[in-house]
């Protein structure tokens, strides 16, 4: 691979992984709330979480730029006090990806937690377990395949993220130029078709790898679901 290609390739993986790390714990908590709790405004929370699936990604990136850019109150606060600049850094790219892939993280976790038999929770309660202990020892282990499926789906989504990334963190080689952005750059600027095809193939390779893992994890996930229904 050329320096241009490998830089984009590794950056994509790095950003994809940080992005999934960001949303692992929030994804589990929100999945749990949506699956197990009933409260006023649940439908609102549910729709809010699914927003990234329907808002154009570039819109989300631009909103992030307004909220977290250096001219914004929040962005300025982070920069002045912690010297953190999210816009135009790879960490910001991971943030944009994590928002875009959040619904995909929550969904399988929620489905699996909803499918769990609530009677098992009662049994644990009768044995003196607190709600927190039930979450840790019953809910979480039974939702494990869902968490894994969510992680891989979110990672795959992050690998392909384009719109929110280019709007929020720009197209900076070596910092935020992931595979989709590099591919776009080539399509916009290059007359060398081979170059474009090469990078396209690299993108496809990474996506297929991520999807292969996703399907194998999903199979496990479905098996677990079947076993629980028995």
């Amino acid at each position: 691979m050329t320096a241009f290609e490998s830089s984009a390739f590794f950056l994509s993986i790095k950003i994809g992984m940080l992005s999934t790390c960001f949303i692992l714990i929030p994804g589990i908590i929100i999945g749990w709330i949506l699956a197990k709790k009933n409260f006023f405004g649940k439908i609102l929370l549910d729709s809010f979480i699914h927003l990234p699936l329907v808002i154009p990604p570039i819109g989300i990136g631009y909103i992030l730029l307004i909220i977290l850019g250096k001219n914004s109150y929040l962005g300025n606060f982070l920069y002045e006090n912690f010297n953190i600049s999210l816009s135009f850094s790879w960490i910001g790219a991971a943030l944009a990806c994590s928002i875009m892939s959040f619904p995909l993280m929550v969904r399988p976790i929620r489905v699996l937690m909803e499918a769990q038999d609530k009677k098992i929770d009662d049994a644990a309660r009768s044995l003196g377990a607190s709600e927190f202990r039930i979450f840790l020892t019953i809910t979480l282990p039974l939702a494990y395949p869902g968490i894994l499926a969510g992680l891989v789906l979110a990672f795959a989504r992050s690998i392909g993220e384009f719109g929110a990334t280019i709007a929020f963190v720009g197209n900076i080689p070596g910092e935020t130029q992931t595979l989709p952005l590099a591919l776009w750059t080539l399509i916009e600027t290059s007359n060398n078709q081979n170059e474009i095809i090469r990078l396209g193939l690299i993108s496809i390779f990474l996506s297929i790898l991520a999807l292969l893992i996703a399907t194998s994890v999903e199979k496990k996930f479905l098996d677990r679901l079947k076993n629980d229904k028995k």
Binding site: L65, S87, G174
Partner: peptide, 20 residues
């Protein structure tokens, strides 16, 4: 040197928001 490319409208807005 690092060359950043994109539509001028987007780049201008990003520079306004702290792009380097």
């Amino acid at each position: 040197t690092v060359v950043i490319t994109g539509p001028t409208s987007l780049i201008a807005r990003q520079i306004h928001n702290g792009q380097l």
